[in-house]
Amino acid sequence: MNRGPLIFLAAFLALSGSWYTYVVRPSMQLGRFQQTNMLGGSTLYPTARPGLAQQGLEVYRAQGCAYCHSQQVGQEGTRFQLLLTEAGTNTAEVATAVKKLAPQLAGTADPLASLPVAVYSGERRYDFEAASRTLNALGAKAVPQVVPYGADIARGWGKRRTIAEDFLFDSPTLPGSQRVGPDLASVGLRLPDPRWHLRHLYAPASEVKGSKMPPYRYLFETRRVARAPSPDALQLPREYAPPAGYEVVPTPDALALAAYLVSLRADAPLFSAPMTITSTAAPTADTNAPAGATATTPAPAINQ
């Protein structure tokens, strides 16, 4: 190690290994990702975000939103769940079997009173399949479900873990590194109304009491109401509303950002992140369907 070229060579060899592994290989692997079919259907995922939402990604980047908000839902595991939907004709036998399979229902007089009922919920595939076989043999109908779980999912931040496919059409990809604010990977699922996002951007505390997010008032214009109020004007609570005769109108940047936020909905069941879409978890329908929202919820996809 007493010559410059030797050190140069050492650094070259070490760095080329790291470079190949973390630059070349991932570029080959991730760079060749394609749209894939969602489980149980032929719907392609992901689709490119709508134009306005793509502009919104630029606004999200320029404002540095990613320094406070991650877009990475974690998942601790996946649970199998067996949902009894129809008891069939052999109700007495099925009720006994259900009581045996689901100890938490053993005390109830009639476990089949309110269907559907979760008969099995756990991570042991063997038990799950055995329960499924038992119920099917008795002529009952049991629907298998795959339910991801974890702290982030329990917080309602997403339905499954975030995977590389969720970012396929984004440039730059902004997965974030910190949770100064909540995770936004699926914010469009829990808050599908762009008007909510606009009000929240203008005055965060008006929508989330005690929020520490800074207001982004500069993305809005407060102006005198002309002949008629603008249809885009924000409907704000009194303490945040502009003086009488004025209205708060979002700039194109604010509209784009809101469209981007509602387009964040990583809810597709994929081979690499399986899950069952449950009907109860469908987003609350809003009269004003968000621009970026995918048109329809895909058909329930099942199977492990």
Partner: peptide, 12 residues
């Protein structure tokens, strides 16, 4: 690059 390949390079 495409998708998360960008983030991997940025992390690297």
């Amino acid at each position: 690059g495409r998708g998360m390949a960008q983030s991997v390079i940025a992390w690297w």
